[in-house]
Design a binder for these strands. Structure first.
Lengths: 191, 191
DNA sequence: GGTTGAATGTTGACATCGTTCACATCGGAG
DNA sequence: CTCCGATGTGAACGATGTCAACATTCAACC
């Protein structure tokens, strides 16, 4: 599948564009993601992108969908890794994800994606799958909203730097209500 | 056309620019705020703005600061208007504010402003004042973070349309734990 | 196997944006 | 009245998203 050549036709531009854009998003702040730069990195000229995405927003929507997919997986893994306190583990994983990939997280929950809702079924599916992982562990609807809202809010506030936190995971566990000194979950971050 | 009328050093360009930009922000989606358009609406040419703001981001920071100020005031008023359940009232007010001015709220908690932290003392002061209003009602630090995070998360998720809600206020009240309709909700709250 | 049409990329162009530079104008202090 | 600092203007630069016209390649059919 990997043509070493660089012929006129780039083997899989779509994937290359997505990869480049995700790189841009993760490395260079928030406003650093431009269609043109992504195309440049993929070794291709800007309008070529329009053969694979109708729009810049469509590229972003695709990236967000991938983000939600990875996000849901991380949440599920966290839960199954800590069967005695799955909700707390998911909360920590939630915040970890946000802090590890701030720009991506902001994209996923930002206005562009909110606007794309309903226009991109893959996106909607990925997002709902991620959320389903959460509600599955929470019990009642109210409890799930409570946990979800709280953790999401904490993640956002930490991203803003509105909350000073040397150890976000500890803060999440403290706030989630459990004060269990189980140090297992704390090792999950790696930053 | 009105080249005649202009007295012209525009009486108070700074204020006019802020007003125009806020208008832009509230009316026209999220990406609709451009320095040039704000200047246009203020009846002035784009570079004039640079006599009053070093940067577009500085304009945004100013607007965010004003937003935090109004926000804090709304929270305080809500609390004093419902002395028997001030936290719930603030929660509802919090979400109301976010839903009434989505773009402004996103600005206030967005990356541009996060980046401006420490560079704009007025901004920091306004934000902390708003947060102070919240923690004043919440009791312990953990409780205040819990309430703040939860309400902030709910607001964000509602903005995204990730949560379908016919009546956001009711949802907030339900989730905040006051008079929960489902008996199980109260159980998972404390812990 | 060569012809042909659909995919895919390329160059060039347009409008818009943030921002800077050189110049114009106004209002107040001397 | 003069002169200077504050404020506003116009042209211009580089970057962006996007479109239109043209070029190249791949695959399928006689």
């Amino acid at each position: 599948m990997s043509t070493f050549n660089r012929p006129y036709h780039h083997g899989d531009l779509r994937a290359a564009l997505i990869a480049a854009a995700e790189e841009l998003l993760d490395e260079g702040g928030d406003g650093a993601l431009s269609l043109r730069e992504a195309a440049r990195r993929a070794g291709v000229s800007a309008p070529a992108a329009y053969r694979h995405f109708p729009d810049k927003d469509a590229l972003l929507a695709t990236i967000a969908a991938r983000g939600f997919s990875a996000f849901g997986q991380a949440l599920r893994e966290a839960a199954s890794g800590a069967p005695d306190a799955p909700l707390d583990a998911m909360g920590v994983a939630y915040v970890d994800f946000a802090l590890a990939r701030p720009a991506r997280f902001r994209l996923m929950f930002g206005p562009v994606i909110a606007r794309a809702k309903g226009r991109d079924p893959a996106l909607d599916a990925a997002r709902e799958a991620a959320f389903a992982a959460l509600s599955a562990q929470a019990g009642s609807r109210a409890a799930s909203l409570r946990a979800w809202g709280m953790v999401h809010g904490l993640a956002m506030l930490l991203l803003d730097g509105a909350l000073p936190a040397e150890d976000p995971a500890a803060l999440v566990r403290e706030v989630l209500g459990g004060a269990p000194p189980s140090p297992q979950a704390a090792v999950s971050a790696g930053r």
